[in-house]
Each structure stands twice: as C-alpha cells, then as structure tokens.
Design a protein around this nucleic acid. Structure first.
Lengths: 260, 260
DNA sequence: ATGCAACCTTGATTTAAATCAAGTCTGGCG
DNA sequence: CGCCAGACTTGATTTAAATCAAGGTTGCAT
C-alpha cells in the first residue's frame, strides 16, 4: 500500500481495499469498532447488512483527495478511522477549512449536482463510501437511518454556527484555546481504548491546516501555542499530541473571559 | 397590535394571531403565498391540512425575540414573511449573526434540549410555529416532508460553509460585496411581485447587524458601502433598498479578484 | 413644525494580526 | 549516522481593520 498524495478516493489505486468475499462484506458493519459512534448506530442487524452491501471500504494515506470542489457529487462517506479536512477555497488560493471529520463523522452530503467543498485526508483514514443512489435507497428503506442523518446534519449545522462565532468574533488567543479544547473532545470521542489519556488532545493536522481552520496565519498559531506552553496551560506529549494542563483556564480563554 | 421589542414568540401578547375558526385554519397552508418556496412544497393537499393543524401563525414586530440562546428547544419555525436574524453571543456581549432567515426559510431545529442560538425579527415577520412533538409527528407521517427538511438543512450547512470562508479568509471589501450580492439573491427569491426591480437588494437590517454578520465593525461596513457608492458600483434606492449597478464587478470583488 | 434618539458617516489614531525574514527542529532516507 | 526537506518557531516591521471621536441624517412622537 504505497503512500500517494493527490490520489482520488475514486481511483482504484492508492490504498483502496477491493471488495472481499461477500460473507466478509456482510460482517463488515456488524464488527465495525466505531459503529455505535456513527450514523450506523441507527441500524438493526439486517440494516447493518444492507449498509455493508451499499458501501465499499477505502483505506487512504495522508494527503489523499476524497472530494474535489466543483466535481459531481457522486458519493457520501462515513469516516471510520483517522481525520479528514473539509475546505473551501478562493480562486487565488486562500483556503478556509470548514471542519475536521474524525472517526464516526460523515461527509459528502450535497443537494447540488456538484460538491461545494473539497475533502482531503489528514492522516491514515479508513472510510466507507456510499454511492448516491445507494444512499437514497437506504434512506427510503430505513426511516431510523434517515432520522439519524437528519440529526447528524443538524448537529453539524450547530457546529458550523459555533465556528462562525469563532471566526467572526474571537481573538487569536480565544480561537486557539477553543481549537485545543475541541481537539481534546474529539480525542475522547474517538479514542477506543480507555487509557490514562486524560486531558489529551489529538492534533494530527499541520500548522497550515490549523491556521486555515481558525482564520489565522501559521505564525500567529505558532506564537499563540508557544505562549500557552510558556504559561503552562498546555504541554507537548508525543508528536501530534498535546496535554492540556488547565482545562478550566483554557475554557475561560475560549469563551472570552479575561485571564491575565 | 403594539410594537413590543423583547417579547418572546411564546408570549400570547406582542402580535400573535390566535387560532381562528377551524375551517380557515385548514385553508391557511393551502393559500399561503410562499408555500412553494418553502419546506411546505413537499406536501400534498392532505399534508397541507396536517401542516395547518400542527402549526400556529404568528405576526411579530421588529426586534421581537423568537428564540433565546440556552432556552428549551420547544418549537420549530417557518418564516413566511419578513426577515429573522440568527445569532450566537459571547459572555461579554460580542455577537455573531450566523444567518438571516428570509421568507421561505425555516429555523429552530435542534438536537439538544436547548437552543444553541438566538433568533430575533429584523422587520415585521410572519411565521408558522410547530411545537416539537407536532413536528416529529409530521416527519414520521410524511416521508417526503422529512426528505425535504433533510435537503433544507443540507443547504443551510453549505451556506454556513460559504460564510466560514467569508469570515475566515475574505477582506472587508470582499465581505461587503458578497453580502450585497446575497441580499440581491434573497430579494429575488422573496419578491412575490415580478416588478422592474432588477438588481435590487433588500437590506432591512441595520449596520450593527451587517457588521455582526460579516465579522466587522459598523464603521468599516459604512466606509466600505460608501466607497462602493463613490465607485458607482451601487446606488441607494428607497430606505433599506440598494440598487446594484455592476453585478459583474461586485462578483469579481466578492470572489477575491483584484479590481483596482 | 420641532426635538430627539437611534442610526449612520467620516476622520484621526491605535492595535492585533499579517507579512517579511531568519533560523531551528524533526524524521525519513541514502 | 548524517543529510535534507518540510514543518515549526521566533523576531522585526507593516498594515487592515478596530477604536476613538465628532458630526450628520432620519423619522417618529409630541
């Protein structure tokens, strides 16, 4: 499985796992380790078999394009491992990351013929791809699944509104504090093993991605994280892991309470 | 019907129209002038009667609170006239308007027990209020209505992503240009009478609201609009109406193409 | 008609974050 | 093991937009 950035999730190469024997395929959703943290938790055993038949599992290396802005909206995806970034761009290259989809999150819904956003893997990602007609069949056949999707999109909209508040009205310091707390939440929702890992945040993305998510430059992100480290609010753990030393202070900063 | 800012949409006073005779109530949705521009266009005649029975119509003056941040999420609304602003606030009063809901748009969906946002009328607003249990019954009884709501929320999410791009990555000039074009689009979708009104934008909100929507200050909004006027890109028409003199140039500005 | 309050505009000055400019760290590869 | 490219950090300077500060408009209530 070679690492091949720029590969599309539709290309057969680039890490895609081809459909194995039918028997195994029926089991895939039944044994999925993040099933109960995703849309799929709306399904009974029969529904899970239908899900498995309607989708194909993909394994993608970091930097792989999943969805391209403006391309026909042919598929819907459920992330089952790793982190995906969703973004929109201006013609001159300025980019806004509109969200990160961690394991258990969906992406790719569209009412239009084409995607209005791009999506790319941040790290090693496993996802289930549903072609549009298959998704529509599922929605019609399983009302609980449709209701669950409606709830999931409603939650995404609330998240988007929270991010608009951040982008439009928070300072750099407040933005970075909010981000670190979100990544701590994402880590807790995602971590399958209940380790010691209290107050850990998973930050698999680069400074460029963080900056494009928070509406800042990489220098401002770097300076702000350094300042938090100097103030002993956070500490670096292993690579792409940050330990949050004072959740309470960070919460105060994130919500605009003065903390000096 | 007295003008009473700060009144809640749940208070019986403040412009609420009480349920008239049952016959008239059955007709309400059938004869609604913006029905085919809203969620309700998914309903057949029987469904429209069910909608009318499930909802109550409210007439609210400018500045009326419809939904309060943090209050129990008891109802869902469909705007049938006027403009509503949706917003989120920080403890110190900083506010981000996350969207304007014009006639035909819904608001009030929530997965949580409480609303994560506030909503307030901008001008004179007419809306239909559905209590939560009633909405849920409708969703279960009318699958086409549920599918239509899913599509509507999906569209709102795409709009939110576009607004994140604006907030995080556009300049003041680009933000205001984008806003004026959006308001032109809103005017065209909303205007029931097909008048001469070509290239008109409906801007019922104040500078404070525009600033809180674009992540700017009122001074910057005012200066930028003045500059557009001086450059003959726009012209004031009647109050709260702006005529757009060069859609093409404004489109270029909005998408980041340099135009000097 | 007049007064006033809310809203809007314009100008001067400040500032938070961007930009410009060097480095330093890190981890994968020969 | 040590080199190199990409990622990150830190410092100096600039700048877009915020803030501070007056006025000017508008329309409603008397």
């Amino acid at each position: 499985m070679t690492s091949s950035p720029q590969t599309s999730a539709f290309a057969p190469a680039g890490g895609a796992v081809h459909a194995p024997k039918a028997d195994i395929d029926v089991m895939r959703c039944l044994v999925c380790d993040i099933r109960n943290k995703s849309l799929c938790n709306s399904m009974d055993e029969e529904g899970l078999a239908a899900l498995a038949h309607s989708s194909r599992q993909l394994l993608l290396p970091p930097g792989t394009t999943i969805v391209e802005e403006g391309e026909p909206a042919l598929a819907f995806f459920n992330v089952t491992r790793g982190t995906v970034k969703l973004f929109k761009s201006l013609p001159d290259g300025r980019r806004q990351i509109t969200g990160f989809a961690d394991a258990g999150q969906f992406l790719g819904l569209s009412t239009a013929q084409t995607y209005s956003f791009g999506a790319e893997t941040v790290d090693n990602v496993r996802l289930c791809r549903f072609l549009r007609p298959q998704l529509e069949t599922l929605l019609s056949d399983y009302p609980t699944f449709e209701r669950r999707l409606l709830a999931a999109v409603t939650d995404k909209l609330a998240e988007a509104q929270e991010q608009m508040l951040l982008l439009g009205r928070k300072t750099a310091r407040e933005k970075v504090a909010s981000f670190l707390l979100d990544r701590m939440k994402a880590f807790h929702l995602t971590a399958n093993r209940r380790q010691e890992a209290e107050n850990m945040a998973s930050v698999p993305m680069t400074r460029v991605d963080i900056a494009d998510y928070l509406g800042l430059t990489i220098e401002t992100v770097s300076r702000t994280i350094s300042a938090f480290r100097r103030s002993l609010l956070i500490a670096s753990a292993e690579n792409h892991r940050i330990r949050i030393l004072s959740v309470a202070t960070l919460l105060n900063i994130a919500s605009g309470q003065k903390t000096d």
